[in-house]
Simulated scan of single mutants.
Amino acid sequence: MSGDNPETETGQPSIGQAALFGLCPNCGARSLFDGLAEFASKCSKCGLDFSKFNVGDGPAGFLTLIIGAFIVGLALWLEVSLSPPFWVHALIWIPLTMMCVFGGLRAAKAALLFSEYSQNAGEGTIKK
């Protein structure tokens, strides 16, 4: 039964580790991403083909809404409590929003790919 859990197998990272560090779900190498939030075509260490997993754009919309609500709440709180000039809001919230969205997007996409890998899911095929 311990072979069914990828978190306990040698070489395979946990879903949290894979999401935070962009680790390959098969071997644990830091080869999942080729860009800021773009998957590499395959793992440079073990050769796992990442293109067969369909993560899609679902995490982008979901994360943007959640992070947007959080940032707007914080900005409103800051405005009501301290009333800083507009440039202070721009200086704080624009970079923070970008960091949260891109960092969250990387983590969410990596977690979804890891989940697909651990459940042996992938693109559906029609058998003839």
Rank of each mutant, 00 (worst) to 15 (best):
G73F: 00
P59I: 07
C100N: 01
P84Q: 00
D57V: 04
P6Y: 01
F70G: 06
A40S: 00
L65V: 06
G104E: 07
Q12E: 12
A108Y: 11
L96M: 15
P13T: 06
S44E: 08
A107W: 11
E79W: 00
L48W: 01
D57C: 00
E7L: 12
A111F: 13
I15W: 14
V55G: 05
A110M: 10
A110C: 12
A19H: 13
K45R: 13
L36I: 07
E123F: 07
G103S: 12
L105R: 08
A60C: 08
G122P: 02
C100I: 09
K42C: 08
P25H: 07
N120A: 13
E79G: 03
E9A: 10
T10E: 11
F50M: 02
G73E: 01
C43H: 02
C43T: 04
I126G: 11
A40D: 02
I71P: 03
I67L: 10
F114T: 15
S14D: 12
W87E: 08
F39V: 02
F86N: 08
G47I: 05
A40T: 01
L96W: 11
S2T: 14
V101E: 14
I92E: 04
G3F: 12
G35E: 07
C46Y: 08
K45D: 13
M1G: 14
F21I: 04
K109G: 09
N26R: 13
F21E: 14
S115Q: 15
S83N: 08
F53W: 06
A90P: 04
S2D: 14
A40H: 00
T97V: 01
L36F: 05
P6E: 11
I67E: 01
I92S: 01
G104Q: 00
A121S: 15
F53D: 03
S41P: 02
S41R: 07
C100K: 02
V72C: 01
Y117N: 11
G103K: 09
